[in-house]
Structures are given as C-alpha cells and as structure tokens.
C-alpha cells in the first residue's frame, strides 16, 4: 500500500481521506491511533503521527483528549469539495484543452463522457479485480 513515490505521511493522510470520502470512516467515528497505523503499515510511528496531524491541522480530524482522534463533522463534504476542485484542475482542464485542440464541441464531449460512464465498472467490482491482481 505504501510506495516510494512520495512521503509516507502524505500517503497516510490520503489513505484516511479516502476512507472518509468512500464512507468507511463515518463522521464522528474514531480513527485508529497513530501507533495502530504504524503497526499496520509497518512504518515509523512519528511518520504516521505526522500524517494524522496534517488532517488535524486542516480540520478533517479532531482530537479528544485522552480518548483519541475522530472524524470531524463536515469532513466528508470538505474533502469532496477539495477533491472536486482538484479533479477539475487535474482532469477536466486538460480534457477541455485537448478537446479544443481537436475541435471537439462541448456537446460531443458530453456524449463521450456519458458513453464512457457505461464502461466504468462499479466501484465494488473494481476493488475485487484489483484484489485478485
């Protein structure tokens, strides 16, 4: 799960974010402790703590003294909003740019997107496939 492409603390933060976005970590539920993250991913506890702290700083998680870390109310919508913005920057903008180069109209583009959504498998089956790999 952890790879060498970027700092581990960022990967830990992303893993937690993914859990919140896909609903497996509900708002106001407790997230595992940094030591549990460290043991599970076999990483340095300080690194795991750094990843968690990134999310605390951005208000996604909050600390209950003596109990642990919890997902903040509104965390999911905050993440979805941010990721939608990132999605626009990373994918839609280059898509639109390329489409303009090729002279594809907005209408044609919409049709293509609709056609492609039929090709994308359900998230569940996608997971199974990657697990099988």
């Amino acid at each position: 799960m952890i790879d060498d492409s970027k700092p581990i603390f960022m990967q830990i933060a992303e893993l937690i974010e993914n859990g919140i976005v896909d609903g497996s970590m509900a708002e106001e539920s407790q997230v595992p402790s940094t030591n549990e993250f460290a043991a599970f991913h076999r990483i340095n506890p300080a690194t795991a703590a750094k990843g968690v702290n990134v999310l605390v700083d951005s208000g996604i998680l909050y600390k209950r003294r003596g109990i642990g870390m919890f997902v903040a109310t509104g965390a999911r919508s905050q993440l979805v909003a941010r990721r939608t913005e990132e999605f626009f920057e990373q994918y839609v903008k280059p898509l639109a740019l390329e489409a303009r180069k090729l002279g594809i109209s907005a209408e044609q583009l919409n049709t293509m997107i609709e056609r492609s959504s039929g090709l994308v498998p359900e998230p569940g089956t996608d997971k199974e496939r990657s697990a099988a790999l």
Binding site: T34, N35, A38, A39, R42, I43, N44, P45
Partner: peptide, 10 residues
Amino acid sequence: YDRLVEDYAE
C-alpha cells in the same frame, strides 16, 4: 520489525 515498531511506539 513488527515488534520493534510496536515496542517503540509504547
């Protein structure tokens, strides 16, 4: 490695 991380965390 596992025991090291566990014990170090505590």
